[in-house]
Design a binder for these strands. Structure first.
Lengths: 174, 174
DNA sequence: GACAGTTAGATGCAATTGCATTAAACAACA
DNA sequence: TGTTGTTTAATGCAATTGCATCTAACTGTC
């Protein structure tokens, strides 16, 4: 009983708390700076990029919203409306899904490809500015490894998606 | 001209992109898990904790909203309404500021102290779960250092606040 | 095929956020 | 003092998010 409580109520060390705090802060600042850069350039917000990238990667047949949902860790109702907006802007299209009457396929439009390519340089510059300019290559690798440990095992769905989104941006972007 | 462009358009390496992506993802997951834990426990969201902590730390005279704003990297209009809500819940009080007719002082109530203390164990457990359980003490230290490098210099206002919020939570909690 | 259970996606509504603007108080200065 | 510019804080309004619920289509079982 005594030992049991010690285990259950184990409190984070100061070091752990510091890492936590800085994780929150660093992400907030980094995200803010990229969103600001995109807005300043008259471009859509960052989530749009992730969606567009995922959809473009999926090829001419696009993909199902629920696939997108899992790849992006986005709530279903949230994604549904996000697609509404992106579609309204003309960057993706919803096509009906032949093999599943409930569903649909989200596919890229030409305008979508264009805008995604326009966003990438701005995005890239912001990443470089927030991370690349501040860490050596070795440090960035260590940071990536450590953060990977925080991601892994948190949620079944996220594990296979670890290398997702932005990582593959490099391949597509130019 | 050629060299100039190379500098300006320097693109992030794959390693840097990976670190970036995982920063976003790790924070998203970690934040989500703590918010979920708080909600499940019937407690207010995480921002409330940060506000309450900052206000409690400020002592009996409280602090000015604009100080809070800077400490927390929160937009002014956003904070204004956040205080509205926390005040409506009875956890802080707005008192008028003797030395500045425009302003006010946000001070803690007893109920606020109680709720903050109730939130801490849940918060602490979530931090331990998201970070402490996944990294050794040494790794957490390295992670904190690297993240600190991402924070420093990004914004003048944030530098003096690096050790902010949650870090000091430990002292107050319990 | 009928029926219970599950999954995909949308939607009404409330809460929160972002943006632009406003009002009041202060500060500096002619 | 009157004028101009700045800082503090609030607020109207639109956009986004979160929650709960709903519909339609699928799956499996009998």
């Amino acid at each position: 009983m005594y030992l049991y409580n010690i285990e259950m109520d184990k409190r984070p060390s100061d070091t752990v708390i510091r890492a936590w705090t800085r994780l929150m802060r660093a992400q907030q600042l980094a995200l803010g700076s990229i969103e600001g850069a995109l807005k300043a350039a008259g471009l859509p917000p960052l989530v749009w990029y992730d969606v567009l990238l995922e959809v473009e990667r999926a090829g001419p047949d696009g993909l199902r919203p629920y696939e997108l949902e899992r790849a992006m860790l986005l709530a279903q109702y949230n994604l549904s409306r996000l697609i509404d907006r992106i579609e309204a802007a003309g960057y993706v299209e919803r096509k009906l899904c032949t093999d599943d009457g409930r569903g649909q396929r989200v596919v890229m439009t030409d305008a979508g490809k264009v805008i995604r390519r326009q966003m990438w340089p701005v995005y890239a510059r912001a990443i470089e500015c927030a991370v690349g300019d501040r860490l050596s290559e070795e440090e960035a690798e260590i940071l990536g490894d450590l953060l990977g440990r925080l991601i892994g095992g948190q949620d079944d769905l996220t594990i296979p998606k670890t290398a997702s989104n932005t990582v593959r941006a490099r391949e597509l972007a130019q």
